[in-house]
Design a binder for these strands. Structure first.
Length: 271
DNA sequence: AGAAAATCCTGGTGGC
DNA sequence: TGCCACCAGGATTTTC
């Protein structure tokens, strides 16, 4: 479930609480997407300096090295002093002096990877090709437009690819395109500068609002302190196939693009 | 290079 | 109740 807003909400929900904690032990469950890349005991005694985010990755900065966490499709974190015994889908526990950070991930598309520095080959492989952060000044309309001009695929798929701009997954791609009045099937290189400017604004607006709402809790997402998100309640098109458009009443359409569902209003998003 | 398809894994749901 | 097909928020890898 986790797109940029869910990852950012998760980050904020435990960053302060874990800061300066010292690692006591690590427990690994079933294998995740990649091996952790170090001997777990090697991390005992290190301190957590900060918790950052790049795209959908959480970056736990240790006093020596980094832990990169990805929630994949079904992952969520909890941070607490008192957690129950690990369940079937709890695949990583970082036990610290301030509490335990636990990754629960039924589908195990998530990952926890140790890298000595962010310049290491593995870190570079995972983070190096990511696009700009959509909520930073780096996300600039003209640069976005020039990037889209070089892509012939459907705009929805270019957004999901994450190499131009990160963090926009299936939910927020559909929502941003609705807000910008652009059909998900429109080819990226056919969008005018003016429409790309609208899309640029829409992406920022949708992601900012979603973070304010604590993200989207569709099935079981919650932040590390256990709170649920509410953005799904104000989605304009996502998950609303056949229901009347909130703006014009026309039934929302559901189509498939690259094995993923896209939702749009055929009237509000004409082209 | 870029685009499209296949792939990893599990749980939930709806149809029969 | 059981069985099966299909669906799900990601993104890498393979193939074209």
């Amino acid at each position: 479930m986790p797109e940029l807003p869910e990852v950012e909400v998760t980050r904020r929900s435990f960053a302060k609480a874990i800061e300066a904690a010292s690692i006591r032990s690590i427990r690994l469950g079933k294998p995740l997407r990649w091996p952790i890349g170090c001997e777990p005991d090697q991390l005992v005694g290190r301190r957590v300096a900060s918790v950052g985010r790049r795209g959908k990755y959480l970056l736990l900065e240790l006093d020596q090295g980094w832990l990169l966490l990805h929630l994949g499709m079904s992952g969520s974190l909890r941070f607490s002093r008192h957690l129950p015994a690990a369940g079937a889908h709890d695949h990583f526990d970082l036990v610290t002096t301030r509490g335990t950070l636990r990754l629960n991930d039924p589908r195990r598309f998530g990952a926890v990877v140790y890298v000595p520095t962010l310049a290491s080959p593995l870190a570079e492989k995972l983070l190096g090709k990511l696009g700009v952060e959509p909520l930073s000044d780096q996300f600039e309309p003209e640069v976005f437009y020039q990037g889209l001009r070089r892509r012939s695929a459907a705009i929805k798929q270019v957004l999901l690819a994450g190499d131009l701009v990160v963090g926009v997954g299936n939910i927020y791609a559909s929502e941003s395109l609705f807000l910008a009045g652009i059909r998900p099937t429109t080819l990226a290189d056919r969008l005018s500068r003016r429409r790309v400017q609208r899309l640029h604004g829409a992406i920022g607006q949708v992601l900012t609002r979603a973070i304010e709402q604590g993200g989207s809790t569709l099935r079981d997402f919650s932040s590390a302190d256990g709170t649920n998100g509410h953005f799904q309640l104000e989605a304009m098109v996502y998950g609303r196939a056949g229901l009347p458009c909130h703006a014009c009443g026309t039934p929302i359409r559901l189509i498939r693009q690259g094995q993923r569902s896209s939702f749009y209003c055929p009237v509000c998003q004409k082209t």
